[in-house]
Write a protein that binds this DNA or RNA. Structure first.
Lengths: 336, 336
DNA sequence: CTGTTAGCGCGTTCAC
DNA sequence: GTGAACGCGCTAACAG
């Protein structure tokens, strides 16, 4: 390993001069600087990250913590975060909480070891104790949902997609196409995630002077298989609807597969619209109408936001909401 | 930030005793240990990672470096690596080379800063200079392809899927179903990746006493859009085949979409088989027959392998090959 | 069994 | 302009 002392020895200048030249901080003659940069190049000097971090408390790393790596919902976000942080010379450390509150707390606890400068955190379910655990890391933080905390919120930012609106858009699209019996295929209603989307769904129905029929609210688990079985059983038990709002693409696909098996043609017999607009929508036949959740944008903005806190030392809250966007394809049909 | 000195002060014991108690290394009385563990708990002590790394040269981090984050091929691998490393208390740092040799070298250069203990590296195209750059990081390394290097290979392991065999299996499956005009939809033939698969394809044809018809080898770029256009143009220019071996799922989907647009029914008019077996295969209609590339297994084994090198200081090469597995669905039909 | 001591590589005073 | 010296928090060798 090449250190500043090797450069010092090679150039005959002191270690502190080497540091000043390399970091461009403090006085240093042109000739000294040139000699040092040259020697550094020749020796292939790369600063030791741990030593740098120990001294300066800068790790040039951000943790991106998400509930589920295999969920396509996060791919564009990971990409957005990675690409943006890269421009700042920052790396991401991937945290993976497997949808488990216990694991979330464990990861947050480990962060007290100061191996990152900031945290981008995604969860399905924010609670005061989770927010408190986030606060106690002492790290600049961006969460990828809107969460209103009763106390001081200045230690975190929210960069998020308007979830109720996404479900509203999807439901509204069905209504506009003449549907009135619209099923809602979601996850566990106890989780914020599903609650918010159900809220948008309900709002759209109410605005159309329709009441929410609880028998049309189907609980699955955000997986393809779960949705497949839930929808299969819904129909087998006499469930009746002309359209389905699926809370993510995986469930939309699961629902499509169930329909195919049940001999229901899409969109002739049943219309399906999903939220997420991942590439899965382009694999199905017919291509699936979906609501883009702007995950790439969310990732990019979250990264910019965290870098702003880290570099500019911003210490007050700044929230950014993105608006979902309807992408019409061929899985919803107009009925009379 | 709580340090060992805080614990030292609180318990009245010296810092080194604190370290011995905490790390379970060296002598320490039961009572002292209990007092120290208790104090650490109360104060919420978490060791400072940078300090630990500086002193011990152990970062408890591994870089996972891949060409493309948005490619579903890697999702299961990321998951496998993450989950396995987690059991060792290791984190992953995500590196992203955007399919660019220049970027690969940059990332490798930065690794000389010793911010990870090991490297899991995936590339589309291994060259001697790339391998040399890997060697010069001085890090324990696993690459996710087989690459035979003319010189000393003891500094890296290969954990990989038998690529030629995957293409062979896919082609063989078509042959068994009576197809003889089988198109090959791949990437750039200059890349190792495509070359290997083309090799398996050719071998299967030759074993069936068929020669490789170059007009049936279609060059695309491993993306859905690329395959869509390439196949569209292939047909429009009079291309004739009864089956297609697509080098990944994205291209399989692109090919399916092109067929649909051209009014070709799958599998009636054209059979399609792809490599990868990602979830995309379950979204298409009909569900796509594919060859599982065991990416989850590759990720897990790569992680075990790198941990073995790190913890047990293994310093000789150990290569592990996985065999791909045919997953039959409904996109290939038997013809007479 | 315990405490003292000396760095790991770098950044930052503070004299010269 | 430059260099000597100290310390970030932790580990390990050594002396007690």
């Amino acid at each position: 390993m090449v250190t500043i002392y090797d450069i010092s020895k090679k150039t005959g200048l002191s270690a502190s001069t080497v540091v000043r030249a390399l970091n461009g901080t403090g006085y240093c003659s042109q000739s000294a600087k040139a000699a040092i940069l040259n020697a550094a190049q020749e020796l292939g000097y790369v600063p030791h990250q741990a030593a740098k971090a120990l001294k300066s408390n800068i790790t040039q790393k951000v943790m991106l913590c998400i509930p589920d790596i295999m969920n396509p919902y996060y791919f564009a976000m990971i990409q957005g975060v990675t690409q943006t942080l890269e421009r700042y010379g920052y790396n991401i450390i991937l945290g993976y909480t497997m949808h488990s509150p216990k694991k979330e707390l464990e990861v947050l606890e480990s962060l007290k070891g100061r191996y990152v400068d900031g945290l981008i955190f995604g969860s399905f379910d924010y609670t005061p104790s989770l927010i408190h655990a986030i606060q106690s890391t002492g790290l600049p933080t961006v969460i990828t949902s809107l969460y209103e905390y009763s106390q001081n919120q200045d230690f975190y930012d929210c960069v998020y997609i308007n979830q109720p609106r996404a479900a509203w858009i999807a439901t509204e699209h069905c209504l506009e196409n003449g549907h009135t019996r619209i099923a809602f295929l979601g996850g566990d209603v106890k989780e914020q995630n599903t609650r918010e989307r159900l809220e948008g769904y309900s709002k759209a129905l109410e605005e159309a002077s329709l009441s929410v029929d609880k028998s049309l609210v189907i609980n699955a688990d955000f997986t393809r298989e779960g949705a497949y079985h839930a929808f299969h059983s819904f129909i087998k038990h006499g469930g009746q609807c002309t359209a389905v709002v699926a809370c993510n693409d995986l469930m939309g696909v699961g629902c499509m597969n169930a329909c195919r098996e049940l001999g229901l043609d899409i969109p002739h017999d049943i219309s399906i619209i999903s939220l997420d607009n991942t590439d899965y929508c382009l694999c199905t036949n017919p291509a699936m109408t979906s609501v883009d959740m702007m995950q790439g944008q969310v990732g990019e903005e979250a990264a910019r936001c965290i870098m702003n806190r880290i570099l500019e030392k911003r210490n007050f809250q700044k929230n950014t909401a993105f608006s979902p966007m309807l992408i019409v394809r061929n899985s919803v049909r107009k009925i009379d």
